[in-house]
Design a binder for these strands. Structure first.
Lengths: 169, 169
DNA sequence: GGGTACATGTAATCAGTTACATGATTTA
DNA sequence: TAAATCATGTAACTGATTACATGTACCC
């Protein structure tokens, strides 16, 4: 086994999800992503097939393929994978995420803000409501990290609603 | 000239910057990006060489190469390019940007929030201060879209500072 | 005039996206 | 049982990143 690859955020997502699940197929991963993480960091389903393969090839995961029927692939984190995940988790980062907001990009280049603001206020309000609903329903039961992330999402959405509302006149 | 390519945000950034500049070399574009846009949507410098080429190949830009000396390439938007840009600007979007924040991802997967929060508060405070300084110095002279984008950045940074401060205990 | 930093560009690689394909289940 | 939808996977493509490489100007 060739032994070095660069670990990307996608890698850590796969490692993190598998660590939580014990064992999972790419489709399971897809479900998990859709359930919560996907709100702030979505992935193409194809990546959930290729990334585990990449990780398994260098010993971060084991792969077990069903012999009959659907011949699904089941993955598990190895101790090497667990170590990599723990190291990543233990290392804080001062990296700042960029906004990379398409609507804002248009404004930057001179688009009329009004129609954008109208659409964006609505979209962000909907997203905010969705988050708040999840928080109301499940807030107390969520793992701490997940709940905190949700709070971050709520904070960000509120900021966006405020921003675009101001522009909508 | 083969006539269809997909226009990405990168494409519109190049078109938008060139439209503002009249004529520019990739290096000029790099400077422009660094000056303001890069704060919320950065690009690799190599993209500022390859993307204009891509756009020129299908008639969105013209390319003029210096005959002597550095043989720089100078680009200009064609009417086709201008039309594409205008259409993109005129079309509002309800697309919501994902957070995709590396620090938050760690929290999501169970990292200890404290050290992360400490680092992040500091980094976001610094960024916020930088934005506010730009606003103080140049705010009044900035093109409207640029100023509005800057305000968005300030709003977002404030939200992050608030969020991470809460976590830093 | 030798070093250092800025300027300019191309090539190679790779992660991520899109497209394609087929098998299994549910539903009408 | 036909149609639609969900589940599962691979292949091809391409945009973006990384790495390399050289030219030009400025400074000590």
């Amino acid at each position: 086994m060739s032994s070095e690859i660069r670990l990307t955020p996608t890698s850590y997502i796969v490692l993190g999800l598998l660590e939580a699940a014990g064992e999972a197929t790419p489709y399971d991963l897809k479900q998990m992503v859709a359930a919560s993480l996907g709100n702030f960091w979505s992935l193409q389903h194809a990546q959930l097939y290729t990334e585990p393969e990449r990780l398994a090839a260098v010993g971060y995961l084991t792969e077990r393929r069903e012999e009959s029927g659907r011949r699904r692939k089941h993955y598990r984190v190895t101790s090497r994978g667990r170590r990599a995940l723990r190291e990543w988790l233990a290392e804080p980062t001062d990296e700042l995420t960029e906004l990379r907001d398409a609507a804002l990009l248009k404004v930057f280049f001179g688009a009329d803000p009004e129609p954008l603001a109208t659409m964006q206020v609505e979209a962000h309000r909907a997203k905010l409501a969705e988050y708040e609903e999840i928080m109301r329903q499940a807030g107390a039961d969520l793992p701490e990290g997940v709940r905190i992330s949700l709070e971050a999402g709520i904070g960000a959405e509120r900021a966006w609603v405020r921003f675009w509302s101001n522009l909508a006149g």
